[in-house]
Design a protein around this nucleic acid. Structure first.
Lengths: 221, 221, 221, 221
DNA sequence: GATGAATGAGTTTTCATTCAT
DNA sequence: GATGAATGAAAACTCATTCAT
């Protein structure tokens, strides 16, 4: 029994090692140079391992994409759990998570862009390489809708939709900026820009640092 | 004489055919599958041509990246020539150019993301795959600086810098959005979102459609 | 005690399962695709079994060849036991056995030809893949010799030798015909052809249906 | 022009070298051990050659099967051209060709049986591995039909059909015999057996050496 | 004793590059 | 100059065999 369990654990460990090695390779040498040899050398495992555990290199890449995507959402979820419950606090959490060192770092953006480079060709990878997942979109949209309604703007739905689309575009743009200029990129500046725009849109809910914790309108109401 | 000229022209034509074939391949089958065979088949030229004209496949890719980058700036320049001289009109021209069908289409975004996927690894390609070129940055920054100064905001330099950074991030984000969801992407919506943000920042200079042609402050001054 | 016996039986059962799975695989996917994986999957046994019971795949193939050959001779022996004792009845039994559904069927001919394909290379397999075993040859030769002597032909030995050789060749040829055209092959027609030839050679001993049970010469003598 | 021609000839030569090397390998080491490495080493050509000329190893094997089949029929045709026109002379030519050293030799039978071993699995190879081609069948059947009609037997069609089927089976059987015992096989004996059977069937048309050149019935008629 | 995860040699195939024509 | 046949290194993948569990 213990023997069987140990073997199962070893199996799992090997799978994970291969996935991590694949992601490392994507980050360090890019998609085109991520060969089976490159991967098994990094994982310090044998050649046959990839086909044993994933049946083909393509399937391994797909699993690696799934893993990267899952990691991203895990990080996000964790931050959301710790954040306050007001819509502006949730938005602050999402934005700060997306620009945190945990999520936005050289390794992960390179993986992201390497995978996306092939995503337009491979449906399998595409499924996992789209951050702007429905889940994330809905989360942000719901928060903006609450704010838009509370702000008593005309057509709160349209406003929330545009705010969501704009915020996601801004975050994507910041990621691209980091990807292209990782050394000159300034996280603080990126945050300030985003919150400046949000505070222009909804001055009672955001300021240059992030969420306004106790917005006036709440008191007034 | 004529023979020599004709040969030179053929030479140029072959080079261009190969570059276009390379870009087509990047757009249609991705970086990893863009092989010498794929390229010469598309160009309907002989196998040896690539090495004759570019010495290696890598150099051809570099030239293709250069070509794509040059095309982008040519399109932009053309639109700027036709635009008005006020800073807000220049900004409108840049934004509308960046989101026009000419610049933002399936083929070109796929090329862009395919090249970027490898850019982190290849310095040579990186040089040409960064839209947010100094030239473009300066153009946008200067326009925002004019507006910031005229708007009499505090620290107009910092404001212009953030506006530039934010605008470029927004445009990048819109490109990413188009890349990932080319069929559901809505150009008008993207423009409206950007101009909504700009009109929030500089209400006298932008409205939801783009530049405000004769801003009040100009008249007042 | 019982445990030991049971283990021995399991051992035997596993061996047989592997041999049958090997033969099934040879029949269904051919020699080249008969891999260890293919075999253990068919036998629903663990990978290590082959080496545990046969020490190597090659040895398993050899045992499978031996098994197939033994099966063939078992079938033959059974039919001979039930046949009459006259030489022509023995010959009839051999021929009818060789063309019966039990012996001549898609599975067994495919196994036969798959093994023969490799027999020219592997001595070990060759030993078992030659139907025209000494045992069979002698059986047929003795019967024809009896008939040839009783027929008072010149050089009865030479006649019997040729008749034996010819009959074996005919049977082999029928097998080949069945192998190549299993669906259009007609057992009755094959039998009629062979007995037509035999009845031409020894009219008093064979007719189109098989052996002549009580030949005239026996009575006369 | 000459340059182009020479290249075309070299191309053809390389193709043929690969096909011959493949057939040599099938004859000498069998189907399962006929690897790309084995083939290119025999042909003294580079690895890439097989895929350059045949796109895959499987296609090369198919072409080799086609080539072997074509060679067989070429040999046969040549002998038929030189043979007399009477049906019994044609039959003699076919039989002697099939058992001649040119057609029936260690190399060719091993190739034949190696290919047939896989033929049941690969349709592509099966197409070329069936000697008993319609063409050959028709040739033999027509000759036997002429003889059967001239012999005034009952149901000449059925007789000719059986004679054809039987003769082909005999030839196949002789090939199998040669394949299994190439060193003890006796061509003269094989011929004598076949002609003995034919002379039993049609005594006026065949004797132990082959065709009867001027059969009595022709004179009588 | 039995299992199936692991190994790495060997397989087919792809590919950028070279070079005789 | 231009061509495309040829090359062989390196790619992905298969496989019989081993061995820790």
């Amino acid at each position: 029994m213990t023997a069987k369990l140990k073997r199962q654990e070893n199996r799992k460990r090997s799978r994970l090692l291969l996935i991590e090695a694949t992601l490392d390779s994507l980050a360090e040498v890019g998609f085109a140079r991520t060969s089976v040899s490159e991967i098994v050398e990094r994982a310090k495992l044998s050649r046959g391992m990839i086909h044993l555990h994933f049946s083909s290199k393509d399937k391994l890449l797909e699993e690696a994409a799934r893993h990267a995507s899952a990691s991203y959402f895990d990080d996000l979820e964790q931050l959301l759990d710790k954040s306050g419950n007001s819509p502006q606090e949730k938005l602050e959490a999402v934005i700060k998570s997306d620009l945190s060192d945990n999520v936005l770092n050289k390794r992960s953006v390179r993986i992201w862009f390497a995978l996306r480079g092939e995503a337009s060709v491979s449906q399998a990878i595409a499924r996992y390489s789209d951050t702007r997942d429905k889940k994330l979109y809905d989360l942000i949209f719901d928060a903006f809708l609450d704010i838009a309604i509370a702000s008593k703007v005309n057509e709160p739905g349209a406003v929330a939709r545009d705010a969501t689309h704009g915020s996601l575009a801004l975050l994507e743009g910041m990621w691209t900026d980091f990807f292209l200029h990782p050394d000159s990129f300034n996280r603080g500046s990126a945050l300030r820009i985003i919150f400046r725009i949000l505070s222009n849109m909804f001055p009672r809910y955001f300021n240059l640092e992030g969420a306004v914790k106790s917005p006036l309108n709440d008191m007034v109401a």
